[in-house]
Amino acid sequence: MKGQVKWLPLILFILLGAALTYGLAKPDNHNITSKMIGASAPSFALRPAVPGVPGLASADLANGKPHLVNIFASWCVPCVAEAPQLKAIADAGVPVVGIAVRDRPEALQRFLARNGNPFRAIGADDASQVQMAFGSSGVPESFVVDGKGMIRQQTIGPINPEDVPGVIAAVREAK
């Protein structure tokens, strides 16, 4: 092994080191964003998750008005933290609808009684099918859907208080 080949291992190592340095330097991002942003919301029709509140269908999302679709569950701990923000968004006139993942009516009723109900409609997604169709990988997540049913934006995790104005603006812009 002579000539220039003897420097090859060192060169390869430097490249490797560069990759490892990049790995350390880049910010940690474990979120899996939905690739459906910019595409039409999937078509679905979910039965009501709680008595007294209508269910949710994709047709409802394409009725000309933009919506905030919140994927949540009563067993989801950060959803409790998010409830006041959702209420604030609903109070600002934004249509907020919910998709309850793997939930029971009694548990949902208790959750809504304790944390308020900002939802105009809540669909029951018992086997996470619609959640998957949206490209969502956890709860809570929120999607801004425009009047024609196109997905415009995704928030992964609970909506923080400081994000509320941004979300309201995003929904208003999504005509």
Partner: peptide, 9 residues
């Protein structure tokens, strides 16, 4: 590793 590979070269 860098040191050892450099020494090797």
């Amino acid at each position: 590793i860098g040191g050892a590979l450099a020494l090797f070269g």
